[in-house]
Design a protein around this nucleic acid. Structure first.
Lengths: 156, 156
DNA sequence: GGCATATTTGCAATTTTGTTTCGTCAAAAA
DNA sequence: TTTTTGACGAAACAAAATTGCAAATATGCC
């Protein structure tokens, strides 16, 4: 595991909120020079602690796509079947997030579609069209109260 | 609603994958000059189409925090109670995502904690300590198969 | 503790990237 | 037809990131 000191944690905390923050500002805030910050960020990227740098778009401003939760239960929980399901879900653009979980169901998916027709087609493709899927339950998102990928890093 | 042309869509598509892409590169790829790209990005940020710019961190590399789904059902679905619940969930750092949904439950939360003890304390604080919460169901995430905030913009 | 070695740092110079200015052009409005 | 508006690209400019290098700090070993 990669060793992270207090400086790294501070940098990560800033970047996961706003990665357009100038390195000079970051340095000023945490008490380090810009080049030092730059080298640390580079290392954090190279070691994969920082997995990606992205813009977050507002769904409301993009034709009001619909966000949908789908809980999926598989027929049998064989390794190969699960692996295959992961691959299919991952490869589907409308699948924004996919989690393999414990409990009543096996997968929880977050889907983003532009119409219920598109969702209906997706269910045909992903669920009805897959014999290994036992059943699935749909919940429509009425309000995205909070969305993000933040991981608490300060306290722990 | 903000009108977005094909150039805007292309820019958004690139930025939501990698927002460190130089504007000159973007321009080259989509057939526009750097200043034109810069003006469009500025506008997209100002109008809120681009809501944020962030680094995405790898949980595995940060002390292996635990991701948990919690489905929450409220006692009664009064406007004021729902509003209040949204506020509390939003303000909790361990609540990475919060959705208000249709169906059997009212809220679906994604929590990120560093131990089951921390989760237990959270449940005390958020659920048992709130009379308006009727019940909740926990699913532990075994594998984050796909995570992101991508919104399909190309096809639609 | 003291020495050699590894890292990490800050400063200054360089390079790259982002931003502004300005003149041109095309489409819509007068 | 003329004016206005909006968007563009080229060039100039400003800001930020990156690199080279010497000094400082930390690490391991005797």
């Amino acid at each position: 595991m990669i060793a992270l000191d207090a400086f790294d944690i501070s940098i990560l905390s800033i970047l996961q909120t706003d990665n357009t923050t100038p390195q000079r500002d970051i340095g000023e805030r945490i008490g380090l020079s810009a080049p030092a910050v730059q080298r640390r960020i580079k290392r954090l990227r190279e070691t994969g602690v920082i997995r990606a740098d992205i813009s977050v778009l507002d769904p409301e401003k993009l034709g009001r796509p619909i966000t949908i939760f789908t809980e999926v239960k598989m027929e049998v929980e064989k390794v190969e079947i699960v692996r295959q399901a992961k691959e299919i879900f991952s490869g589907t653009p409308q699948v924004q997030q996919c989690y393999y979980v414990t409990g009543d169901v096996d997968f929880i998916l977050i889907l983003v579609v532009y119409s219920m027709k598109e969702y209906e087609e997706l269910t045909q493709q992903l669920f009805f069209g897959n014999n290994n899927v036992k059943n699935f339950k749909t919940s429509i998102v009425l309000d995205i109260v909070k969305a993000g990928l933040n991981i608490p890093v300060n306290k722990q």
